[in-house]
Every structure is written in C-alpha cells, then in structure tokens.
Write a protein that binds this DNA or RNA. Structure first.
Lengths: 333, 333
DNA sequence: TTGTACGCGTTATCAG
DNA sequence: CTGATAACGCGTACAA
C-alpha cells in the first residue's frame, strides 16, 4: 500500500492524497477529502516515514547514548527522554556504551548514518575523540548531558559533580566522620573524576588525610560496590564510605550485611544520584540528588529547539546538587 | 556529502563507489578502490541509511515495546535487546507503554510507519486490539515476549506465569504459612492475571481460604507495594505476602520498615522476577526468577531470523520459573 | 572494469 | 481545487 495505490483507488492524484494526509487540505473539496479518507481507513494506510524523511530531511528520531540502562539512574533518564520525545513527536534510539569510548564513537557514527535528527549524549570520554570535533564542525545537533565541556558553542545540560562530591563528604565530616573511605567510578569517566575531585577538596579543606587504600576503584555497578566495601572495612578506622553513585551504594549495603556490619551504626554510607530505589532500601540511603529526570527533559527540549531552529535559547544549563538526608549516615561524637 | 560527491571527487562513477562500500568489489581494480576509499575517509563519508532503506526495504531498526524501562526487570530486558540487536547489526527504538493499551497500539502504528523491520512486544493487552490482527494478516514480524497468545502462528517467547505464581505460593505454604496476602499487578495485565491465577490455584489446592481484603490491587510500581502492604498488615493473621513482581516487593519492604515490622520474622515476602537488586536488598528477596535477559535475547534472535527469513526455527519457546531461595521467607511452625 | 538510467515512496513546486 | 513532475540519496540491471 503506497500513496499511489490510495490515489488510484480514490480516483484522485497523488498530490491530493498527500495534501489531505498532511493537513494542508484547506483548499480541498470536503467530498473529495471524505472519499480519500475512506480509502485510507479501509486499507489502514500509513505513509512510509522513510520516504518522507528522504525528502523532508527529518527522521524524527533522536539518539540517546548512555552508559547502561540497567543502572537505575540511566533508566530514569531513558524514561524521561522517551516521554519528552514522544510528546514532541520524536522517537528514541537507545544506545548503551558500557562506558567504552570506542562503542560511544561507533554509536555516534551509526546514529548519523541513520539520520537521527540529533543526539543526547551522556559521554564517557568527552575530551578526546574526533567524532565530537566533526559534529561541531558540521553543526550536528547534540546536547551533552550530565557533563560539561569547555567549548562555548556546545549545548550542555550539566550537573556540578565536583560540588556534589564535596557536599557528600562535607556532610560526612559535619557528622563527625574523620576516616572516610571512597569507592570511585570508572577511571576515565568524567563524572567520576569530578566527584572524586569533590571528595579530595572536602577532605583537604577539613585537613583530613587519606591513604590510597581507602580509595577503591569501582565501575559504577552494584558488584563493585560490594567488592569495594569489603576491601575498605578491613581498614579499622573507617567509619563512613562515600560511594560515587547509588548503584555501588546498594552493593555496599550488601557487603556490609554479609560482614554483619550495621548501617549506619557501624558504618555510614552516602552516595550520589538518588535513584528511585534509594528511598526504598533499608535503611533509606542518604544521597546527593542529581535531578536526572529534569535534566534529561530539559536536554531533550533543548535538542529539539536546536533541531527545529526555534527562537533563541540557553545553550548551557547547570543543575545543582541537593542533599537528601535519610538514614544511612550516623552522627559520630 | 553524498555518494555522488564522492564519485565526482574520486573521478569514478556512483556504481563504483557503491560497489566498494558494499564489499562487492571483487572486480574492482585495487588502485581504484584505494583512491575511492581515500576520498571516503578524507571526507568522513557515511552512506545515508534512509536512502538505503528506501531501496533495500530494510531499516535495520527493531521496535521494543515494554511497559516501563524504569522497572528493573524491563531495564534488563531493554539492555539485552539492545546488546543482541547491536551484535546482529540492528538498532532499537524504545517505547514505554505504561501498561496502557492505547499507547501500545499507537506505538505499533508508529513503528510500522517508521518501517521498523520487526517488533519485540511485551504486550499489555494482547487479546483485543485490531493492530495485532492486522499485523498477523500482513505477516509483519513480531515476537511476543513474556506472554503467550493462543494463535498457533504467533511467534512467542514466554514464561509460565501461572506456574510461577503457584510456585511462589506453594513455597510459602511449605514453609508453614496459612494466611497469605497478595499484591497484584494492573487489572488487565496478562502476566498479572496469570500470576494471580497461580496464587488462587495454590491456595485452593492447599485448602486455604482468602478474603477480598487480603488481595490488594497494585500496579507493578514500587509505591503500590508500599501502600498495598500497609493495608494488608492491618489483617492480624497474615504472616506472608506474595507480591506479583519485585518492584512491589521493594515497596513492601519499605512499608514494613515504616511500621517496624521485621522481614522475615514478622512477615515473609516473596515475589516474581528476580531483578538485579533483589539479591542486594536486605534481607535478600526470595523470588521466582523470570529469566528476562535470556528470554529477550532469544526473542531478538527469533525476530531477526523471522525478518531475514532464515532456516526454520521454533516459533514458540517457553521458559520455566525458577525458585530463588534467599532470606525473605521464614519457616513457621 | 566502469558508467547510465531507473526506481524506491514521499513532498514541494508550479501549472492549469 | 487538482494534477504532473522533479527531487531526495542510494542500489542495481544492463550496457559498454
């Protein structure tokens, strides 16, 4: 079933059908309109959007590049992206990079080939890959989410990860903790680097020292939180652990439980993200909220403005961390 | 940059470029090949897949229709779908229905318009909407995941939800529980109906009675588990609750905690799914594993076989429930 | 070994 | 008010 068939069956020209289907039918006789619509409905005809894209140069598809949907936080982002996109008549192609810069670069290429109208990019390795350069040169619409770049022309919706890291550790310090462990994210991950920087800043500002042993490299997955805390609890003085994201905090809970350590009595846990489940687990996780849903909604809207070349808009929006005090941190005296 | 430009710059015909780019270059002089490739790389040219789809009639896009990525279980499914698809050179368009049949129908239409080569459908309302009929008539490739239909011709990867429900409740009964509450899923959701049927079967087989009050309607979301259990714990005799999915069990944990009820000492919890976090929460959740990742991987492979018209294959694959015994159910004497 | 020309399904332009 | 026709970028039969 093509537009041609419909035209033939309704005994009108292709143009007429197209006009009607696209709502440009002010000048079409009602009778003709009804006849065409009837044929369309009878045959359940839907225009082929690929052919349409061919000519309009718009695919109405957005690429969403994230590390891993399985991570609660990114699941929420994916959800927000999809809802917002749907509202504005776009679809989302989902891409998981697993924090691998090569995979990320591949996906950027793929999405361009597929003529995605734009990209929401939660980048793993922003600094040094040539795709980004090319994108900038060609002015391909991309909004970088969750991470800032230093090029004035980039569209960015970001979160102050350094401040978030600092906020988490300061909160621990205010609660009397002096020996604080840290489970980081993947080594090259920008948000992980920033959050860790926040940790360092807060520790130094408070005149607290820390050894290499109390900083464990994780990978933002549950399991690494579990493994990480098992290493840390060997260090007798540690009273609190800062996990760089919620998923690892969940793992830390498990590790503590396995070793019969009570949270927060024996060990306090704090992290960053505030995924849905963080208010659900017991004890409820004290965490620094990164407003992923709002950020992503903002990003999608920004991207679409860019694509549709709407009125001026801010190309840089920053979200601030918010402390969500729950039950996983205890005051030490 | 189009194939035309490349041809012009390399001083060859369009055909030559196309042949080389598609690996059909056995008959092309190496020198020519190199020259073309050089131009291609220099300009970072990538063929436009929309135009390619136009002619090949293949979009290399698969639609994934699920209730909600934010649900751990579906996040894992989305992940599995995306990985498997990528491996086989397909992309995934993500669609969340929120358990709404109309949204589902809309998405089916949309994906067809977008010329998705096939669909993975975790259906909310399989029985009664005309899209499915049309799909069947037109032999559009669809694999129904997580839910069985009764049409022999449908491709189905399913899970025995009735057996799963029965298994959960039987386990509770074996552990000495006689007064068992239940938090169901959305009313019209097929998997919810089946799981609940399993509950009823097991209760009846054991000669156990239950009142309307001890069966609460939930919606598969965390919050409804929390609300649900708060209603149930009012009924003094209840010693165990069967939540129809893990997300609601997480909510139940929270509800119990709020009311100072210990799991499993005061109340036992069991559910179905076995999402990642179920082994992480404390106490670890005893649940019936629905092997979502394997199911989805299987479904995608089946779908692609169907699309690419490969050799014969099973159109019906059933996965069985597996009891995962952890710590949320206590033996009563 | 390479080039010419057509067609995929649609929209846009312009003529009538 | 409606229709003919050109284009979009690519793949491929066929010709050379």
């Amino acid at each position: 079933m093509t537009i041609k068939d419909i035209a033939r069956l309704a005994k009108v020209s292709i143009t007429t059908v197209s006009l009607i289907l696209n709502g440009k039918d002010q000048n079409i006789r009602e009778e003709t309109r009804q006849r065409v619509l009837k044929v369309v409905n009878e045959h359940n005809y839907r225009p082929n959007s690929v052919a349409r894209s061919m000519i309009t140069k718009k695919s109405k598809i957005l690429g969403l590049i994230i590390p891993d949907v399985t991570n609660q936080y990114f699941a929420e982002i994916a959800r927000a992206a999809e809802s917002t996109a749907k509202e504005l008549d776009y679809s989302i192609i989902l891409c998981n990079t697993d924090e691998d810069p090569d995979t990320e670069a591949q996906y950027v290429q793929l999405l361009r080939e597929k003529q995605a109208d734009g990209l929401i990019l939660v980048s793993t390795a922003l600094s040094d890959y040539k795709e980004l350069e090319q994108i900038r040169r060609e002015k391909y619409p991309v909004v970088i989410l969750d991470r800032r770049t230093y090029d004035e022309n980039d569209s960015v919706v970001c979160f102050d990860n350094i401040a978030a890291g600092r906020m988490a550790v300061e909160y621990l310090i205010q609660n009397g903790h002096k020996h604080i462990g840290c489970i980081t994210g993947p080594q090259n991950n920008p948000s992980s680097i920033d959050r860790y920087t926040g940790f360092c800043q807060a520790m130094e500002a408070a005149g607290l020292s820390y050894t290499k042993e109390q900083v464990i490299e994780g990978d933002y997955q549950v399991k690494s939180g579990e493994d990480g805390i098992e290493k840390i609890i060997g260090i007798s003085k540690i009273t609190a652990v800062f996990c760089l994201n919620d998923m690892m905090a969940y793992g830390a809970y498990k590790g503590c439980h396995k070793h019969n350590l009570k949270i927060p009595e024996d060990i306090s846990i704090i992290s960053i993200d505030d995924a849905i489940l963080s208010s659900v687990i017991i004890p409820a996780l004290t965490t620094i909220k990164q407003p992923g849903v709002e950020m992503c909604t903002t990003a999608v809207k920004m991207l679409i403005k860019e694509i549709e070349d709407k009125e001026d808009y801010d190309k840089f929006i920053n979200f601030n961390p918010i402390l969500i005090e729950r039950e996983s941190v205890m005051k030490r005296t």
